[in-house]
Design a protein around this nucleic acid. Structure first.
Lengths: 136, 136
DNA sequence: TTACATGCAAACTGTTTGCAAATAT
DNA sequence: ATATTTGCAAACAGTTTGCATGTAA
């Protein structure tokens, strides 16, 4: 039982062929601790590991992984999209000074007093971003 | 006492010369109820009112109004930026089906149990987006 | 062998910028 | 008169797309 087999299974379960590129990107993403990546940063990380993947494929793969529930998109204002390897329900600190994103451990933070939803609608998820700035 | 005078004062207080374009955009933005606009939608709205403003000026103006605290930027994933004329501390419903943004009245929703912040940092603001989808 | 995935380059979207002409004070 | 603002067009960043080539089953 090696890691590649496990990763391949993971991809197969998600309905994705375990190709070289997808395996490589999955390795970068899911081995080790939770990460927040952009297309650009994932591409660079893959390069550092000596993996050759085109940026277009990185974009494709991010979408596929997201659609398969392996990644979660995080909405930070700005042009760039971020993806979080932690797909559980949790919230974020965003350091505005350096653009870094940190998880807030689930259970720490609670939301209460949500008003009634419009009829026919339900909550998909709740995004909470606590924006930090340097103390004045 | 006419509306233009008031708007001009508002701009002047914000350190902005009350030019024709800024007055016109302020009129569209701040007369009537709270709005969520994108650069594109504001440009279109201005056109409908017979106001001639270039898109570049709309972008400039949105930034200036935001920096002056007259608007608040709302981070929804995606390429487009949204601005909210309601600058008070409040949260949002986002209807994923049609891309519409609605205010959640402040006071309804409470957040508790925030963990300690990194040293030297303080909260700038907390963004909460309750993402709605159509009931299955 | 057949359907799917990749990589390149070109296209596209939203946004920003440089600079000459116009406007506010 | 002077500094600021505007508008255009070009530049730009991130992302998406079309299509020929390569790969997995």
């Amino acid at each position: 039982m090696n890691a590649n087999f496990t990763t391949a299974e993971k991809l197969r379960k998600a309905g994705l062929r375990p190709t070289q590129q997808r395996l490589a990107l999955a390795k970068v993403l899911f081995e080790g601790c939770d990460k927040h990546v952009s297309a650009e940063s994932l591409h660079e990380d893959a390069m550092k590991f000596g993996i050759s993947v085109s940026l277009a494929t990185v974009y494709n793969t991010l979408h596929q992984f997201k659609d398969a529930g392996l990644l979660r998109e995080v909405a930070i204002e700005g042009v760039r999209s971020y993806y979080d390897t932690n797909t559980s329900n949790h919230f974020h600190f965003f350091n505005e000074a350096d653009g870094e994103l940190y998880d807030i451990e689930p259970g720490d933070l609670k939301i209460s007093g949500l008003p009634n939803l419009p009829p026919g609608q339900e909550i998909d998820r709740i995004d909470v971003i606590v924006r930090l700035k340097n103390k004045a």
